[in-house]
Amino acid sequence: MADLPVYPPMLATSGSLPPAAEDDRWAYETKLDGQRCLGYLPGDGTVLLRARSGADITGAYPELRALRTALGTRSAVLDGEVVALDERGHSDFERLQSRMGLADHPADAARMRDRVPARLLLFDVLLLSGRPLIDRPYTERRRVLEGLELNGPHWSTPAALVGHGETALTATRAEGLEGLVCKRLDSVYTPGERSRHWVKIRHVHTLDVIVGGWVPGRGRLTGLPGALLVGVREGGVLRYVGAVGTGFGDRDRAVLGELLRVSAIDACPFTPQPEVVGARWVLPRLIGEVRYATLTRAGLLRHPSWHRLRPDLAED
């Protein structure tokens, strides 16, 4: 892999549909709910899959190793999302969670391969046959990607729609999909940048939050987190945005309980300290995604619900 440049993925900015007058200058792709993945194919019969964090996740998805021969001896760097599909064919992050974190556990990864198959959905190509493409417009990169005909047993290239953004947004909402990603046709690929030339629209409000504490549960939840105390980084401090006590499965609580126990600290990491009875504080390194109805005037989450842990975004 030494001959291939390593790219941090380009990221989208949250927003809304482009103005109607500019609709034909944008492409629209379904927003996927999985694990971002860059695939490195040096053309020597090997493949390396890297997560958004840069971590090697190849071992977690043994079925994707066959991608190594999909382009023969041509080298390539591909951008996409690893997903686990539900019975409707929609990406389902909760299903994928059982596959994540198994990169160093080949036996477990092999066993889960049949129970929860993974699929790599490709949407960009950053390099092909030794030639970088990141400075080329989206339309050219997309044309090159589709020309590769990467539609195999465990990977595919979903369609992108040029124009008709309102139709695409309505259709993804009606189908119960995560949302829409809007990409300017003339946009170059800017590694590691959260660009306004890529706009993501979610059909529910979500927020990446940092876990700074928890409140123990009661009854059958004794010893497990009853609620997580979460915040966001603002002005160099961790600002408290609320307590999240719903949306957890039994496995979620068990995993989080162990992570919280090994992260215990005495001092509150929030500024200012929230007045929460029975709060226990933790080192603010765990990041999760929550869904919520709206924000209060005080900046607190209204009706928050836990969605998922984001190990790919863990704090340093």
Results as ranks from 00 to 15, higher is better:
Val204Thr: 15
Val204Asn: 11
Val204Glu: 13
His205Glu: 15
His205Tyr: 12
Thr206Ile: 15
Thr206His: 10
Leu207Val: 14
Leu207Tyr: 00
Leu207Asp: 07
Asp208Tyr: 04
Asp208Pro: 13
Val209Tyr: 05
Val209Cys: 12
Val209Glu: 00
Ile210Ser: 06
Ile210Val: 15
Ile210Tyr: 01
Ile210Phe: 03
Gly212Met: 08
Gly212Asn: 02
Gly212Cys: 05
Gly213Asn: 06
Gly213Phe: 06
Gly213Val: 11
Gly213Ile: 13
Gly213Tyr: 09
Gly213Ala: 10
Trp214Met: 09
Trp214Ser: 08
Val215Asp: 01
Val215Asn: 06
Pro216Thr: 04
Pro216Cys: 11
Pro216Asn: 05
Gly217Lys: 03
Gly217Gln: 08
Gly217Glu: 01
Arg218His: 14
Gly219Asp: 12
Gly219His: 01
Arg220Phe: 04
Arg220His: 14
Leu221Lys: 05
Leu221Tyr: 07
Thr222Trp: 03
Leu224Cys: 10
Leu224Ala: 12
Gly226Lys: 07
Ala227Ile: 13
Leu229His: 07
Leu229Lys: 00
Leu229Tyr: 01
Leu229Ala: 10
Val230Asp: 01
Gly231Ile: 14
Val232Met: 11
Val232Gly: 00
Gly236Tyr: 01
Gly236Ala: 09
Val237Asn: 11
Val237Asp: 11
Val237Gln: 10
Val237Gly: 05
Val237Leu: 00
Leu238Met: 13
Leu238Tyr: 08
Arg239Met: 07
Arg239Val: 15
Tyr240Ala: 02
Val241Gly: 07
Gly242Glu: 07
Ala243His: 08
Thr246Met: 12
Thr246Ala: 14
Phe248Lys: 07
Phe248His: 09
Arg251Leu: 06
Asp252Lys: 03
Arg253Cys: 05
Arg253Ile: 03
Arg253Asn: 00
Ala254Asp: 13
Ala254Trp: 07
Leu256Glu: 02
Leu256Ile: 14
Leu256Trp: 10
Gly257Tyr: 02
Leu259Thr: 01
Leu259Gly: 05
Leu259Asp: 03
Leu260Tyr: 04
Arg261Lys: 10
Val262Glu: 15
Ser263Pro: 04
Ser263Lys: 00
Ala264Asn: 02
Ala264His: 13
Ala264Met: 13
Ile265Arg: 15
Ala267Pro: 01
Cys268Lys: 02
Cys268Asn: 04
Pro269Ser: 05
Phe270Ile: 11
Phe270Lys: 05
Thr271Phe: 01
Pro272Gly: 09
Pro272Gln: 07
Pro274Gly: 02
Pro274Glu: 02
Glu275Tyr: 10
Glu275Trp: 12
Val276Tyr: 03
Val277Arg: 14
Val277Pro: 02
Arg280Ile: 08
Trp281Pro: 05
Trp281Leu: 05
Val282Lys: 03
Leu283Ser: 10
Pro284Arg: 04
Arg285Asn: 07
Ile287Ser: 02
Gly288Glu: 00
Gly288Asn: 00
Arg291Asp: 05
Arg291Ser: 12
Arg291Trp: 00
Tyr292Glu: 01
Tyr292Leu: 03
Ala293Thr: 14
Thr294Arg: 15
Thr296His: 03
Thr296Arg: 08
Thr296Asp: 11
Arg297Ser: 15
Arg297Tyr: 09
Ala298Trp: 07
Gly299Gln: 02
Gly299Pro: 11
Leu300Asn: 03
Leu301Tyr: 11
Leu301Ser: 08
His303Pro: 01
Pro304Trp: 01
Pro304Phe: 11
Ser305Gln: 14
Ser305Phe: 04
